[in-house]
Each structure stands twice: as C-alpha cells, then as structure tokens.
Amino acid sequence: MSELLQLHPRYERPRIPTAEELILRFSDKAITELEELKTHYPDLKSCILPGLWIAQREYGGFLDGGAIAEVAHRLHRSYAEVEGVATFYSMYNTAHKPGKHKIELCTCLSCHVCGAYRIRDYVKQKLGVGHGETTADGLFTIEEVECLDACDRAPVIQVGDTYHGPVDEAYVDRLLDELRNQSESTVVKMADEIVKVHLRGKS
C-alpha cells in the first residue's frame, strides 16, 4: 500500500495537559483581541475557531494540550469540545510541533498534471523528510496539501501567508535559501495575519 494511504501522525490526538501545564499564557494583546471577537457573534462558541488562531500564534505555531485548554477556559467550553474542533481542521497544528516554516506542497489535480509530484520529490529529497515530518534542525516541515485554489499558477507552494507558483527546482532552491535566512517563523506570522483580518478597523 502506498504511504499516502496510511494513517498519519498528524491525526494523532494532542496530549492532554497535566495540571502543571495549565498556565494561562495569552498576552494582553491576545486577550484584547479575543474580547473584540466576542462582540462579533451572538454566541461565544463561534469564537473557538478565531480563538484557536490566536492560540496558534501565542503558543509559537503549535496547539498543544495547554493551548487547547486555555482556549476552552477563556470561552467557557469543555476541553474535549475545543480539542474536537482543533483536530478537525488541517491548518491547526495539533499533536506535533511544526518547524519554523511549513512548506505546503499542492499535489492536487492541476498541480499534479503540471508536475507537482516531481517538485514534491525534489523538496523531499533536498530536505530529507517526508509528508508531515520536520527537519532535524527544526526549520522545515513538509506537508502535501489539497488544491490551494491558485491552479493558474500550478505547481503551487504555500509558505505562511504567501503563495509561490509556478515553481520549478531552481525556484525551490531560492525559496529554501530565503527561508533559512529569515528570522521570523512563517507559521506564527500566518496565524497573526489571520487574527488581524478578523479585527475591525485595524487595517
């Protein structure tokens, strides 16, 4: 059976936090943001998704059990409920801490017919890791993703809030070099950008 058919560690459950790990870590900025979000909906529950985005930023790009517990606590929901939501959506990083940069390789239809698997193999071989894995230096995680809806630029790669395409091997070389020299984590930056677009009058 192809490796793509095997259940992936990405689907593992987050580890339930111990009592010592239950520390509220949201910054003042995060608390203010969450307070504004609460005014957007008639029901607190709707803040779970944006709340998880805030947590993903506050916890360095990774929603561990503690992060999930904090969102649950701040929104008066149960841990199990928030965990259920967090693990449903592929853009929340649960269970495993991703690298500083997540290289999302689209291998879906249009990209596939424009050579996306060749690019995927190239990136895999260059970084020495496979789907869902992180390089030993903690810099890169590779993920094969479904259509990013930029098929006119196939094959497409997304890193953080930026789309790249059409990409070829030389482009990948340049991109990885650029990312190596970048101090900011694109995973965290992406979560921050997503939180920002929710907030009224801040653009």
Partner: peptide, 18 residues
C-alpha cells in the same frame, strides 16, 4: 483559511466602507 491576501483586501474594503 489559506486565502490571507483575499481576507486582507476585504478587511481594507470593509474598514473603508465603515
């Protein structure tokens, strides 16, 4: 969630409309 550019453009438009 992936469409951050689109969301940013709409954010600006909504804020200006307000």
């Amino acid at each position: 969630g992936e469409f951050i550019d689109a969301a940013r453009a709409l954010r600006k438009a909504i804020d200006q409309a307000y």
